[in-house]
Design a protein around this nucleic acid. Structure first.
Lengths: 174, 174, 174, 174
DNA sequence: AATGAATGAGGGTTCATTCAT
DNA sequence: AATGAATGAACCCTCATTCAT
């Protein structure tokens, strides 16, 4: 049912109603509410689900990347693909929760992973020394927006962001 | 009245109702509808208004920047400040329109301006050769998301993005 | 509209829905909510309305009763008639508010009136010395229940209650 | 299970749900429905149960009262105590059944008992000659309301009512 | 007999929009 | 032009009841 809901939101975004989910899942609306006591809870679960999926991939693939500078490329690329596939979902989540950030265990695992990738990149001189996990968060947040609104080629956005993350920091223009 | 509406949306975001606007503007709700036939139209106007403000500043300040590489810094910095000031507005606009992009004349003028700044930067070797106006759009889109959701320090985001835009392009990781 | 609602509740009790009220009043349901932001608020208003009516009668008629012992008879008799006329209303009010007691100004005025009637009765040796306004409240509460559930002849109930109130108090059976 | 349900209703009144009963009884909800095909049926059974308890006490204690005038005092006092203990139950019953009156055998037994007590009282000149079982019903109905809504000191209510029942009837004020 | 997941008919409430005055 | 009362389509959520296991 969560899958059905996720697909529905992915397709039609925030305008999906609980009754739509019930219909698509071929259950009564009460059943939807039995599993998710609130529309918000359903969206939260869908968000978790998506994060878990991303995380699974990331832990499997990104950490295995041979060249230690490529991990973040892979991670962001995968995130982009998932977000692009479930386009409408991001919007629905954001308008229900106010943001797209993960929470709970996913968040912790994701932060740990990103931290590792950053460190590796830094060791390989492929990531600037002052880069932090928070930078990655912001980039993902921006990426989500670029994809959601279709404001341009998101792969290009990733490339720019990574180039920014790679470049040697310079003192801010005064 | 537009100003009042803009302030209201800036403060409370998408939850602002037409009746709230009327009350704040001290007019009847019918009058609001006389000026803006639809909630969406009002939001559109508020968006335009904001863009016009940004544009005015940009044309005045950014083009006047002595060092030809600094124009974009100034532009993005100003956009960030305006978006941060009117935090709620972006969300309201996006959930009504699907994106935050300008349209109409503002868009044309803004594109022209951005194009000029990019060209100057390129001439000064401060902006990579393959940079386009669309890159700037995406960065602004990302910036808006970072600010709206409060996912991190948006000034840092700008710095990263600009560093990405400054860096010498390299072939995408295959 | 309040009148319409009151009649409807009087007739069908707690099962009346907001949509029924709207239909009966020949307005949209939104209009009902414009006047009474909540079902409970509507019921509260109906209760007030009824109390005001009772109060108006009481102040006009009961205080004018020539024989100073008759005031309470008249008051309770009138209350009984009103409650019997609006049978269903009491139940609806009680299940929404938990009790049928008046509140606000009505309560104060009603208490003052009852106090006066009791004092007069006592002066005329027609009401026992230890009688209080609270006794009257309880009797009215009981009367309302008798009428609401149709458990017997409410006029008889009043007579019994008044006889209890008239009788010379004796020490409680130990 | 009936006991569990009764306690639950006593505590939380009409807001108790069938699922709550099941949980409290540590059985499945289906089992509750096996025993009581309807919420109303469950409430009916709880009401019966309560009446049976009252009846048992009454037959044991009240009929044994030495002074023949005291029986009703004892009966009403006990009813009051039970109703006060199971406060919420009365409300739940009333909103499901429309009244709190007993039915079936309990009713018959109770009426017989009350009749006996009245007759004894009359023989002892402690109860007015025109008193009937119905008077007692109404008083109990009123008592239940006084207790349920907490509108005052219910022991006082009983005393007043009994004084009313004791007093010599006079012609109604014309 | 016991279970508890599934059901779905409501019911209360909101709010963008209309239109008579 | 201005007003604001009226509108009613939506929408979220509840809970008594059913029924396959």
């Amino acid at each position: 049912m969560l899958e059905v809901a996720r697909d529905l939101f992915a397709e039609r975004g925030d305008e999906v109603q609980m009754a739509d989910v019930a219909r698509a899942a071929e259950v009564g609306i009460g059943t939807v509410y039995r599993h998710f006591p609130t529309r918000r809870a359903l969206l939260e679960a869908a968000a978790q689900h998506r994060f878990a999926e991303i995380l699974a991939f990331a832990q499997e693939q990104c950490l295995a990347a041979p060249d230690s500078g490529e991990g973040l490329d892979l991670l962001l690329g995968h995130i982009g693909e998932v977000l692009a596939r479930d386009r409408g979902l991001s919007g629905a989540i954001e308008s229900a929760m106010g943001s797209n950030e993960p929470s709970g265990e996913s968040r912790i695992a994701l932060e740990k992973l990103a931290g590792t990738l950053i460190e590796r990149g830094q060791a390989a001189r492929a990531i600037r020394d002052d880069a932090t996990v928070n930078d990655v968060y912001m980039i993902v947040c921006g990426l989500a927006a670029v994809i959601r609104t279709g404001s341009g080629d998101w792969r290009r956005f990733i490339r720019l962001a990574l180039d920014g993350l790679r470049s040697v920091p310079r003192p801010p223009t005064p």
